Simulated scan of single mutants.
Amino acid sequence: MKQLHKILNEITTLTTDIETNYPELYRSLDENPMTLPVSQHPHMDKEVMQEYLESLKQMLHHYLDEHKTQTK
């Protein structure tokens, strides 16, 4: 349970950072397939939340890489 709590805290921190510092990216989170449950009652466990956290990190990393390329 502690591990899941830690993952949820990381998701919250990262999402808040994206919302504050990258609002244009934050708006696209609603469009991210990882945020849309496939079933009406999705099973949310530690593994699913870890995958979601990793997808957020990847999105931010990709966005930052893209942004660097555009500013050069």
Rank of each mutant, 00 (worst) to 15 (best):
L53K: 09
S28T: 10
L4Y: 09
Q3R: 12
E54L: 10
D17R: 09
Q58H: 07
R27C: 06
T16I: 03
Y22C: 03
H61N: 08
E10I: 06
K2A: 11
L53C: 05
L25D: 00
S28F: 06
E31N: 13
E66I: 00
M49S: 04
T16S: 14
H67C: 04
N9T: 10
P23N: 02
E47I: 10
E54P: 00
T35I: 06
N9P: 00
T15Y: 02
L14R: 08
E24D: 15
V38D: 09
D45F: 03
L14D: 06
K68V: 08
I18W: 02
Q58N: 08
L64V: 01
P42D: 05
M59D: 13
Y63R: 06
L53Q: 07
I11K: 13
Q70Y: 04
H67W: 09
E19P: 01
Y63D: 05
L14C: 08
E47C: 04
Q70E: 15
K72S: 08
Y26S: 10
E19A: 15
Y52E: 02
K6L: 08
N9R: 15
I18Y: 03
L25Y: 01
T20W: 11
P37D: 14
H5W: 02
Y26R: 02
K46C: 05
P37L: 13
E66L: 01
Q70V: 06
Y52I: 01
P37M: 14
D30I: 04
D65F: 03
D45N: 15
Q3H: 15
T35H: 14
V48K: 11
L29N: 05
M1W: 12
R27H: 11
T15S: 13
K2S: 14
I7G: 07
R27T: 06
T71F: 01
M59G: 08
T13M: 07
K2Q: 13
N9I: 06
H5A: 09
M59R: 12
H41T: 14
T15A: 07
L36V: 13
L56T: 01
E24R: 10
S28H: 08
L4I: 08
M44H: 10
D65K: 07
L29G: 03
M44F: 11
I18E: 01
Q50T: 11
E10D: 15
L36T: 10
M1C: 06
R27E: 15
M44R: 13
T69M: 07
L60Y: 02
E66P: 00
Q58L: 07
K72W: 07
Q50I: 02
N21Y: 14
E24P: 04
M59E: 13
T16Y: 14
Q40G: 03
D30R: 12
D65Q: 12
Q40H: 05
M49D: 00
E31W: 08
K6T: 05
D45E: 03
T35C: 11
Y52C: 01
Y52K: 06
L4D: 02
S28G: 00
H67P: 00
N32G: 00
M1S: 14
V38E: 13
K68Y: 08
P33S: 06
Y63K: 05
L36N: 12
I7N: 08
L64S: 01
E47W: 07
L29M: 12
K57D: 01
E51V: 09
Q3Y: 12
L53Y: 15
P23H: 02
M34E: 04
R27Y: 10
Y52V: 01
L53H: 07
N21T: 13
L64F: 00
E19H: 14
L36A: 11
E10F: 11
D17I: 02
L36R: 15
L25G: 01
L14V: 04
N21E: 14
